[in-house]
C-alpha cells in the first residue's frame, strides 16, 4: 500500500485518501508515453484532504514513493 504525504496540506495517509491522475506534465507531453518499469512522475489528488493536485514520484514495480511536490515547486528545473 502506498503511503503518501500531501505536500500542500501536509496530511500523511494511505493511497485510499488520494486519487491517481496519470503521468506528470501537460497532456500533449504525456499521452503517447510508455509507462517504464522505473520511477514515474505522476499527478495525484489530495481527494479527502485539501483537494489539491500535486506531483509524486513512484516506482511502478516496487511501489516505493520517493517524493511529492506542489505544482510549480518541482524538485528539478523546468516542467516535464
Amino acid at each position: 500500500m502506498l503511503m503518501i504525504r500531501c505536500p500542500v496540506c501536509g496530511i500523511a495517509a494511505d493511497e485510499t485518501e488520494f486519487t491517481s491522475g496519470g503521468l506528470y506534465g501537460r497532456l500533449e507531453e504525456t499521452e503517447n508515453r510508455v509507462i517504464p518499469r522505473d520511477v514515474v512522475r505522476e499527478w495525484w489528488l489530495c481527494a479527502r484532504g485539501c483537494g489539491t493536485w500535486f506531483g509524486m514520484a513512484r516506482h511502478v514495480v516496487n511501489q516505493r514513493v520517493t517524493a511529492t511536490w506542489a505544482a510549480g515547486d518541482e524538485p528539478w528545473d523546468g516542467r516535464h
Binding site: T19, S20, I35, N62
Partner: peptide
Amino acid sequence: TDAYPSHS
C-alpha cells in the same frame, strides 16, 4: 483492479 498503473 488497483487504482493506479503498475508493473508489479
